[in-house]
């Protein structure tokens, strides 16, 4: 059984789909599995040490955000019993339950998507998309969008630098930061769009056909695995829903 881009894609897709239905206990128990997969299973290995660091960082942020969501809901959603008294505040179990559901969905959904992108070179994604029959135009658009998102943080940093180099106190406080961030958002989006158009032309000038047409047919060979993954997860979901 082969495990390639297609099976990886369907695995991540299945996980992301399950995130909407599974109870929070199951969702959360998937989290360590995802991290272990990222570290130990070769198809899910991150592209670089930097990518691995970012992956763990992001999981960290998500967890923090999750705890915040649970806390806020427990505090503000006054349903069910009071489970905890903190000074003048009451924490309700109904709120916590709701918060846990929201947070676990968010966590599983984002990390499933992240798991796919952290371990898949854009090149393989392009090949895969081409092989499953998407047209050259659509693949190009998806690629440009991925490229744009990939480069965005770097561009924002660069514009921040440029602003700072011209005397803007962008590092001073969060308010200033937000202000300069919003002031660059529109021109940044515009300039990136303009560039995307030129980049699309450049891709064609380099003979891009949507996917590597002749040289790499091997990516299709794991479609069986991919099918198996999607089928079994749908089956599991269905039986869970009936059982419930």
């Amino acid at each position: 059984m082969r495990f390639g881009t297609a099976s990886k894609f369907s695995f991540s897709f299945a996980l992301a789909l399950l995130a909407f239905f599974l109870p929070w206990q199951v969702s959360l128990s998937f989290m360590p599995v995802i991290v272990l997969l990222e570290i130990f299973l070769s198809p899910f290995r991150p592209l670089s040490a930097g990518a691995h660091k970012k992956f763990l960082q992001f999981i960290g942020y998500l967890t923090f955000l999750g705890v915040l969501i649970v806390g806020m809901n427990g505090l503000l959603l006054k349903s069910g019993e009071v489970v905890l008294r903190l000074l003048w505040f009451n924490i309700y179990d109904g709120g916590i339950e709701f918060g846990l559901n929201v947070a676990s969905r968010l966590l599983l959904l984002s990390s499933a998507i992240l798991l796919f992108f952290v371990s898949t070179p854009i090149k393989m994604l392009a090949d895969f998309l081409g092989h499953i029959g998407l047209s050259k135009k659509i693949v190009t658009i998806i690629l440009l969008a991925t490229f744009y998102l990939d480069q965005l943080p770097q561009r924002i940093t660069q514009v921040f630098w440029a602003q700072e180099a011209r005397g803007a106190p962008v590092r001073s406080n969060i308010l200033q930061r937000l202000k300069s961030f919003f002031s660059i958002l529109a021109p940044l989006t515009l300039s990136s769009l303009v560039e995307s158009v030129d980049r699309g032309m450049a891709l064609q000038l380099r003979g891009f056909q949507g996917y590597a047409s002749l040289s790499q047919p091997r990516d299709l060979q794991d479609l069986k695995t991919a099918f198996l993954i999607v089928f079994s997860s749908l089956l599991a979901l269905l039986s869970y829903l009936i059982w419930k």
Partner: peptide, 26 residues
């Protein structure tokens, strides 16, 4: 910088990108 496809992590890969597109034998 616009001509760089971004589909390859190395210069070697990038130089080979167009060859790959016209189906050159590995």
């Amino acid at each position: 910088h616009l001509m760089i496809s971004g589909l390859h992590e190395t210069v070697r890969g990038e130089v080979g990108f167009s060859l790959e597109n016209i189906g050159t034998d590995t």
